[in-house]
Nucleic acid binder design. Structure first.
Length: 280
DNA sequence: AATGGCGTCAACCGCAAACAT
DNA sequence: GATGTTTGCGGTTGACGCCAT
């Protein structure tokens, strides 16, 4: 029994959206809303598109108040902070950055910010001009020599309050796989710190709360059955070191992952299964 | 001028969680 | 509680444009 397809793949259009399709989708949603059902929406709106595709187009591009163009240093900091704390949780980052989408942030991280942090200078090129129906999107990050390593070692990254609801036990990126339970991010009175609180209500029932921690990088707090709060302050230099060390692991085809009940059986996560044994 | 390499970004894919029945 | 459906997420891919040769 296979997975039921979300749409009739033979009859849906794929690839870039035309301005006409954009208009149709936008007008339909503005008029009727999504109706709580993306799967049915394209048919109602007269679009030959998969519901998922419509949703993505709306969320990443058409919905109001989407911010395109260069990221500010403040936004860089937020992204770095969250990445250092919990890894590639793009949607959480997006929730911290009004107008930014997870896709945007992911692209920005993968193409620019990561390199920027590692000291690779990716910004010599002039910004691209995209093709016709994407002309409106690119005001690329303009290279700013001062933005890459300025303040390294002394600056830390502020972040505002956010509860993080998801419970996937392993996160990954091409740089990292780091563990987390469910955490709450708190801003402290000192806006330059990020606090992450482990959610006590979230548990795997075993009482075995041991986790492997990247000690040097202040990556995570340990539970041991009680709530622990740790103020995390990441400097650019620390994040850079983190990237480098994980990059090394990555090059050796090792991934970092947690020593945790979910990782030791219950979890049938392909990422875990493929992760070679490399425990911190 | 031609073209191959590379960077960027929108969009797709597959998986797991959340929700509905 | 079991099963089916939809949504949300993160990783990956393909198309496109710029740049160097």
């Amino acid at each position: 029994m296979g997975r039921t397809p979300c749409c009739d793949k033979a009859n849906v259009k794929k690839g870039p959206w035309s301005p006409e399709e954009d208009t149709k989708l936008k007008e339909f949603i503005e008029k009727y809303g999504t109706g709580g059902n993306w799967i049915a929406l394209p048919h109602k709106a007269g679009l030959r598109r998969c519901g998922k595709s419509c949703r993505l187009r709306w969320l990443n591009y058409l919905r109001p108040n989407i911010k395109h163009g260069e990221f500010s240093e403040e936004e860089d900091r937020v992204i770095c902070s969250i990445f250092a704390a919990i890894g590639s949780r793009w949607s959480i980052m997006a929730s911290q950055l009004p107008g930014r989408t997870d896709n945007d942030i992911k692209n920005y991280w993968n193409t620019k910010l990561k390199k920027k942090l590692l000291g690779i200078t990716p910004f010599q090129r002039k910004p691209h001009r995209r093709n016709n129906h994407h002309h409106h999107q690119n005001q690329h990050f303009s290279p700013s020599p001062s933005s890459s390593s300025q303040g390294a070692g002394s600056e830390s990254f502020p972040i505002t309050s956010q509860v993080m609801p998801r419970s996937t036990p392993v996160i990954s990126s091409d740089f990292f796989q780091v563990p987390y339970h469910q955490y709450q991010m708190k801003s402290s009175s000192n806006m330059n710190t990020v606090s992450i609180i482990k959610d006590l209500n979230y548990g795997y029932g075993g009482g075995e709360e041991q986790m492997s921690i990247h000690k040097e990088s202040k990556l995570f707090l340990l539970g041991g059955g009680c709530q622990v709060e740790t103020g995390l302050e990441y400097s650019l230099e620390e994040i850079k070191q983190l990237l480098i060390s994980n990059s090394v692991c990555n090059n050796n085809n090792h991934n970092l992952y947690l020593d945790h009940p979910m990782a030791n059986g219950k979890m049938e996560n392909s990422k875990l299964q493929h992760a070679p044994d490399f425990r911190l």
